[in-house]
């Protein structure tokens, strides 16, 4: 017998009682979504920028290589989407568009179509996510309602810059992924 059949057979032979799935109530969450989201992002050690603040950062030249999948900022970018993400090993900044944000925790949802290549938000040294402030939802429950059954090969919530506290619980920003997360609320 294959391991598959033996595992499934063992489970079925136990004849365990079936228990119904609970209904998930409509948890309301915070009222002022923008405030709550802002607080969450800052708590996650991210930053919130206005479009103008981003533009002046880009113009200052602190980021030599910039990729943008967001058309509003693509005139300030100088990198095209490669076929192999290894090409972006030295990328300084990526600008991506988020689909929506979650007020309770600052998580922002992106899918394959927003990413171009899945490695981009991780391999880039710094990350900007542009987000429509009208897209905010209150809780993770509403977030999954909003994602619904739409199909994407890959999707993720990003809530802050890469961080670790593995050395004596001291918080260090910039472990393996992006060293900073700037959210541009439009």
């Amino acid at each position: 017998m294959s391991s598959r059949d033996s595992i499934l057979g063992k489970i079925r032979s136990l004849n365990l009682a079936q228990k119904a799935l609970p209904e998930i109530p409509d948890f309301k969450g915070a009222e002022n979504l923008v405030d709550r989201f802002r607080t969450a992002i800052l708590g996650n050690k991210g930053e919130i920028l206005t479009p103008d603040e981003l533009i002046s950062k880009l113009e200052s030249g602190v980021y030599p290589t910039v990729y943008s999948s967001v058309t509003e900022f693509s005139n300030l970018a100088n990198q095209a989407l490669p076929t192999d993400s290894h090409t972006f090993a030295k990328l300084d900044l990526a600008i991506l568009k988020g689909q929506f944000g979650v007020a309770e925790n600052g998580a922002i949802w992106l899918e394959d179509s927003d990413l171009g290549l899945r490695a981009i938000p991780f391999i880039t040294e710094h990350l900007v996510i542009v987000l429509d402030s009208k897209s905010l939802v209150s809780t993770m429950h509403q977030a999954y309602n909003r994602i619904g059954s739409q199909y994407s090969g890959f999707g993720l919530f990003i809530a802050g810059p890469s961080k670790t506290a593995d050395i004596e619980q001291s918080l260090v920003i910039g472990a393996h992924g992006a060293k900073s997360l700037m959210v541009v609320l439009v």
Binding site: N44, G106, G153, F154, G155, L156, A159, S162
Partner: peptide
């Protein structure tokens, strides 16, 4: 509040 990266893998790139 949440982990930084919460990745949902559905099909390979």
């Amino acid at each position: 509040n949440i982990t930084n990266y919460n990745s949902h893998f559905r099909s390979p790139e």
